[in-house]
Structure formats: structure tokens, C-alpha cells
């Protein structure tokens, strides 16, 4: 399992635990109202679970397991040789994708409620940037992985 995958998978587990803990807190708040502001964390709970856990896990495991790129094959070659990480695609680009995804998740999930609680305009602006970071991560992932969604011809 490459380092890139290990980082994104472990990050996804952290989001899963935090996201579900937030969910439990919201349920407890429904029973024993602790603070009205907790309701503003509902979106945070959803973003942590859907983007932080499910999506990030899929990205990390897809990067690890999808068929490698067909690099180094010459016409008439009946076999291919593994060239390690390069056959997965550009590792720096994948790091950038994970960085954009996590930046988008954190900005969206933290700045939106912070704006509700403090009315500081900067948080609203940062929360507004988040969807574009997530979009950039999604586009980057599709670009980097498109060529790997292919038939794997065994020797």
C-alpha cells in the first residue's frame, strides 16, 4: 500500500470517527438541548462523513488498486513490467488532489458554522472558496485516473 494511499485512508478513518461523534452529539442535543449553535454543525457532520470518509477512502484505494497505466509497452509486447509508483500516475499531482480535498473539507465544514456563530465575513469567504477546492480535487482525480479504468490483460 503506497504512502499516498495510507495517508488518505488513515485521514478518512479520522473523519469517520469525528463525523460520527458529531452526529451522536447532535442526537444527544436533540434530547438534552445544550446549545442552539450545535445545529449549525449538521453540515459539518455530513461533509466529514460523505467527503472526508467515503470519498477520500475511495480516492485512496482507487489510486492503490486500479489497473496501472500502460507505460513502457512497445508494439508487439506480450507482457508489461511494473515500474512501481510511476505506473499509478503522477504522485505529486495525487498529493495535490488529497491536499485540495482536505482543504476543501476543512474550510467548508469549519468556516460555515464559524460564520454563523461569529458573523466574521472572512469565514463566509473561506467557506465560499471550499466548493471550488473540492471541484478541483474531483477534476484532478478524474484526469489522473481516467486512463487507469481499463481492461487488465493478464499474461
Amino acid at each position: 500500500m503506497p504512502t499516498t494511499t495510507r495517508v488518505s485512508v488513515k485521514a478518512s478513518f479520522v473523519y469517520f470517527v469525528l463525523g460520527s461523534a458529531l452526529g451522536a452529539l447532535l442526537l444527544v442535543n436533540r434530547w438534552i438541548p445544550m446549545w442552539d449553535g450545535l445545529f449549525d454543525l449538521r453540515d459539518t457532520h455530513v461533509v466529514f462523513v460523505v467527503d472526508g470518509w467515503v470519498t477520500q477512502l475511495i480516492l485512496g484505494v482507487g489510486w492503490w488498486l486500479l489497473p496501472p497505466l500502460q507505460i513502457g509497452l512497445k508494439p508487439g509486447d506480450s507482457s508489461w513490467k511494473r515500474r512501481g509508483q510511476t505506473q499509478r500516475g503522477s504522485e505529486p499531482l495525487f498529493w495535490a488532489i488529497i491536499g485540495l480535498l482536505n482543504a476543501g473539507i476543512l474550510l467548508r465544514s469549519l468556516c460555515a458554522p464559524l460564520f454563523e456563530w461569529t458573523d466574521v465575513r472572512l469565514f463566509d469567504v473561506l467557506a465560499g472558496i471550499a466548493p471550488f477546492l473540492l471541484l478541483a480535487a474531483a477534476v484532478g482525480f478524474v484526469v489522473i485516473m481516467w486512463g487507469r479504468v481499463r481492461e487488465l490483460k493478464r499474461r
Binding site: A24, L27, V28, R30, W31
Partner: peptide, 24 residues
């Protein structure tokens, strides 16, 4: 219902502990 949420968190945290060392 609040207890149900806590039980789910316990399960999820337990899964994190169970699988963490196998992410290698």
C-alpha cells in the same frame, strides 16, 4: 435515539482501532 448515536460511534471508533495497524 441519542444512545443509538453513541453506540454507532463506539462501533465506528472500534473499527478505526481494529483496522489502523493494517493500513501499512
Amino acid at each position: 435515539v441519542a444512545l443509538s448515536g453513541v453506540l454507532q460511534v463506539v462501533g465506528i471508533a472500534g473499527f478505526g482501532v481494529l483496522i489502523w495497524g493494517r493500513v501499512r
